[in-house]
Design a protein around this nucleic acid. Structure first.
Length: 898
DNA sequence: CGCTTTGATTCAGCGGCGGCTAC
DNA sequence: CGTAGCCGCCGCTGAATCAAAGC
């Protein structure tokens, strides 16, 4: 399906008045308009840009996912100030609301930096970091919790930094009106590094080369220039350590607010760590386990055998093993290993040439791995524990590093093990062999004064760097895509926390500019200049629907898109103003949404899709992500498309939490919070594949509910058994059996209940006998079992009788109508709880809440909610999340606002 | 390049349940 | 004999880990 052909149909530079007018009349011949007009849509009168942001979903159920493209609508109805009466779930953002929030927040946006106290190092800490004689390992192990670190610099560094960033951006070529940059200027990189769209447009006549696909050879320029001013700034403001020691005692070091950290220039002064952990070396298969080729077991060189095990150990993974690309890529790579190491030998020592994938039988290898897996699983708990302890001890030295004298957790200190590359979606390279990484490929980044860890015996590192502008500890290049892999600190480290803080502060900063930005793009939606109009339209989509920027992608990557890279076929237009998005986004996750947009946006999209454009052509052929981001940066330093996602997500969450009423139990408050979380996740299109077990577990849950409903009915019947007059008193309706619980269902249900009772009895009997046997006592006779099974039999009989007579004998001792009434209440309550649970589960089956919680929702919102509603933060943040968001938990009171 | 964002996979711990024991 | 309380097992959920993909 993937249409990878890049065509060069390009929009005209200017939009002729005639075209504009024609579009106003909505000539059906243009731009792939679907005729179907939704009946529920009223006339749209407004063009003021306050289309809803969030999903006005009904009851939290999103029906528009997958193949049910309906239910989710973005009706552009009124924005009268009556929003307070609209139920939460139906609320949409309006520009008024935005404004309100902004105004009320304006006085609390930022504490002046000057007011904040810079941290200082304590004497103890100074001692620690300068103590380079003690081995790091030893110190790390003893190290309790080191204190604040030395801080330098000031807001100047930031400003210098931002200037630098500005210079970098300037380096990009882009002028919206410039169609004629000579092709020659667009140099191709020698190495296939990541492409950077630079906005150079190609000639109209050249229809084989994609419009946006130029790469700027900018590397050197970008790095060298900006570094200078930044460096200067940082050099001058270093505090003395004494100063710091003094201040430290006064108040806790609010490291996340320290502008010197994580701001682009020097990230650390001293850095000590122990390097990385390599995966264990390959252990050849035992002699009796071999790849079978054409019926013959073959002995492979260990290197080739290892590759064979990569495949052999994943035979259960049908998504891979049944994917032709995967198999083709794997076998191609496997063959090169075989060619290099010599092909296999049979028992007699004859060479067996492995030529056909279809003749390879990896089953024996698979089974061996399965057996090993099972063996490991069956290990006694104590042994498992010992094994784990051993591993932990071996890795302890790598788990932490010393960063400016503070002990910090390292994130991914394990070098990625070799295997088969999977990739996501239809990745062209799926199945390729991901090679084992040797120390010779690994570059370390570490303090100059620190003692670099030794490479494993017999090896050396590729390089030892002292790059204080990098936050990584180690790095290597991976062989599939040539991407760089970095070892960095864990999410709860100072450096990550600070960068997190800055991210959300940046999003909050956007509040101050959003009105102007929206006003501008509303205006530019009508610009005569095609480039401007496309840009405005793109920003509209990013702002309203939380699309990603959408960089161009290469032929050797999965074919996914974002806003700027949307293609003709990804957007369908339905009169008068409905837009249907259907494309694969990041990670090949489907983005499907049917929305209503401003008429001008609708019209623009129509123009952008105008013939001769067709399948495969860019909708935004005059726009690149860099041009877009460059434009955004002019509003606010550091503003890019991505910031809108953070802003919109947090803003949405803030609005939902703000309007929430503090009622009910903790559980109810948590449920309400989760519902808001879910709305944000839906906004960001964070999906997960429905678990294989979902349908079954749903079925089970529903059956349990029905079982209880059946009990309710039976209990009602018991009332009649006790007091026949009750039927009149309560009305016949009360005693009617729910329709869906028909006779067929009841029969089945009864059988299942009886059967369950039987197996339970049987199991218990067997277990007891086993025990008796083990104790050397006499086992119980089968007669005993029979007797016990009588309970089940009686139950069966009772049901039969009930079915026949239509009556239910009252159960329990001394049953009364009152007692039964109470029982029904209890049962009804359980049904209610379970029904909510079931709905929740169903609604959540394809929504991933975690991603937005971890990356998009300002954690301070959660902290405020927790404080305001008096629900422990533990109910919202797991231990790791609490650590990651330590800065947020410590920094706000319940009056803080996003 | 270097960092954040992302969903899948793997792992661990929690809660429910039945059984057993002590009273 | 009935019952409260504790223990161990099991299934499941949520947390941690992992590595790819995006900007």
């Amino acid at each position: 399906m993937a249409n990878r052909t890049r065509r060069t149909v390009k929009s005209q530079d200017r939009i002729p008045k005639a075209v504009d007018r024609a579009m106003d009349k909505q000539l059906p011949s243009n731009g792939h308009i679907e005729p179907g007009i939704s009946v529920r849509m009223g006339p749209v009168e407004k063009l003021d840009g306050d289309a809803p942001l969030t999903n006005g979903n009904n009851n939290g159920k999103r029906k528009s996912r997958g193949s049910f493209p309906n239910g989710k609508t973005y009706k552009d109805n009124s924005t009268s100030g009556e929003e307070d009466d609209i139920p939460l779930s139906k609320r949409r953002r309006t520009s008024q609301q935005t404004k309100k929030v902004q105004d009320s927040d304006s006085d609390m946006d930022d504490i002046p930096l000057a007011v904040r106290k810079p941290p200082k190092a304590t004497a103890a800490q100074i001692g620690a970091s300068s103590d380079s004689d003690t081995p790091l390992t030893e110190r790390l192990v003893k190290e309790k919790e080191s204190i604040e670190k030395a801080a330098e610099k000031t807001a100047q560094a930031i400003r210098a930094k931002e200037k630098a960033a500005g210079a970098k951006r300037k380096a990009k070529v882009e002028s919206d009106s410039d169609d004629d940059v000579p092709l020659a200027k667009a140099k191709k990189p020698k190495v296939p590094i990541k492409k950077t769209a630079n906005g150079v447009k190609k000639d109209d006549s050249d229809s084989d080369v994609p419009l946006k696909k130029k790469v700027t050879p900018k590397k050197t320029k970008v790095k060298a220039e900006p570094a200078t001013p930044a460096k200067k700034a940082k050099g001058k403001a270093v505090k003395t350590e004494e100063d710091q020691a003094v201040e430290d005692e006064e108040e806790e070091y609010r490291w996340w607010e320290d502008p010197t950290k994580g701001d682009g220039t020097k990230k650390w002064n001293t850095l000590e760590h122990n390097g990385v952990v390599f995966p264990p070396p390959y252990e050849p298969l035992p002699k009796h386990v071999k790849l079978v080729y054409d019926g013959v077991p073959v002995t492979l060189h260990p290197d080739a055998e290892e590759v064979a095990t990569f495949y052999g150990s994943m035979l259960h993974s049908t998504v891979n093993v049944e994917n032709p690309t995967f198999n083709k890529n794997f076998f191609e790579d496997f063959t090169t290993y075989l060619d290099k190491t010599g092909h296999g030998k049979d028992k007699a020592g004859n060479t067996i040439k492995i030529k056909k994938f279809d003749k390879c039988d990896f089953k024996p290898i698979f089974e061996w791995f399965e057996a090993e897996r099972a063996k490991k699983k069956a290990l006694p708990a104590a042994e498992k524990k010992a094994l784990k302890a051993e591993k932990d001890a071996a890795e302890a030295a790598y788990m932490f590093c010393m960063w400016d004298g503070r002990k910090q957790k390292v994130g991914n200190f394990r070098v990625e093990p070799p295997g088969l590359f999977r990739g996501r979606g239809e990745h062209p390279k799926t199945g390729r062999v991901k090679k084992r990484v040797a120390p010779e490929q690994v570059t370390l980044n570490i303090g100059k004064e620190a003692k670099a860890p030794e490479a494993p015996a017999g090896h050396r590192w590729k390089e030892i760097k002292h790059d204080q502008e990098g936050t990584w500890l180690a790095m290597w290049q991976e062989n599939i895509n040539g991407a760089y892999k970095y070892v960095m600190l864990a999410a709860n480290s100072d450096i990550k926390g600070q960068s997190d803080y800055k991210k959300f502060e940046k999003a909050r900063e956007l509040k101050k500019h959003i009105d102007r930005i929206r006003k501008d793009y509303q205006k530019d939606l009508k610009s005569e200049k095609m480039a401007d109009r496309q840009r405005a339209t793109a920003i509209y989509l990013i702002d309203q629907f939380a699309l990603r920027a959408g960089n161009e992608k290469g032929e050797d990557e999965a074919d996914t898109v974002g806003c700027c890279s949307l293609k003709f076929q990804h957007v369908t237009l339905k009169q008068p103003n409905t837009v249907v998005f259907d494309f694969l986004g990041k990670d090949s996750i489907r983005f499907y949404d049917e929305v209503q947009v401003d008429l001008q946006v609708f019209k623009n999209l129509k123009i952008f899709k105008k013939p001769p454009k067709g399948e495969g052509d860019d909708i935004f052929d005059r726009l690149t992500t860099s041009a877009l981001n460059k434009h955004l940066t002019s509003y606010m330093p550091g503003l890019t498309a991505k910031v809108f996602r953070t802003y919109n997500a947090s803003w949405t969450m803030a609005r939902l939490l703000k309007d929430m009423k503090a009622v009910g139990s903790d559980a109810e408050k948590v449920a309400a919070y989760n519902a808001a979380n879910r709305e944000v996740a839906v906004l960001c299109n964070h999906k997960r594949t429905v678990a294989a077990s979902h349908a079954a577990s749903m079925e089970k849950l529903n059956e349990r509910i029905n079982g209880i409903r059946y009990q309710v009915w039976r209990t009602k019947m018991m009332m009649i058994d006790i007091d026949p007059k009750i039927k009149k008193k309560k009305g016949a309706e009360f005693f009617e059996r729910p329709e869906d619980l028909d006779e067929e269902w009841i029969k089945k249900h009864q059988e299942a209940v009886v059967e369950e009772e039987r197996t339970k009895t049987q199991k218990k009997f067997e277990k007891q006998n086993e025990k008796l046997k083990a104790d050397g006592e006499k086992e119980m006779p089968d007669k005993e079992l029979k007797q016990r099974l009588q309970v089940a039999n009686d139950l069966e009989k009772k049901y039969k009788k009930e079915n026949k007579t239509g009556k239910v004998e009252a159960e329990g001792k001394g049953p009364t109508v009152d007692k039964l009434d109470t029982k029904i209440q209890t049962l009804e309550q359980r049904i209610k709880t379970m029904t909510v649970q079931a709905e929740d589960k169903e609604g959540n089956k394809e929504v991933a809440l975690g991603t937005s919680k971890i990356n998009y929702i300002d954690p301070r919102l959660t902290v405020v909610f927790s404080k305001k509603f008096n629900v422990p933060i533990e109910k919202f943040f797991s231990k790791t999340l609490r650590e990651k968001f330590d800065w947020a938990i410590k920094s706000v009171d319940e009056n803080w606002e996003f």
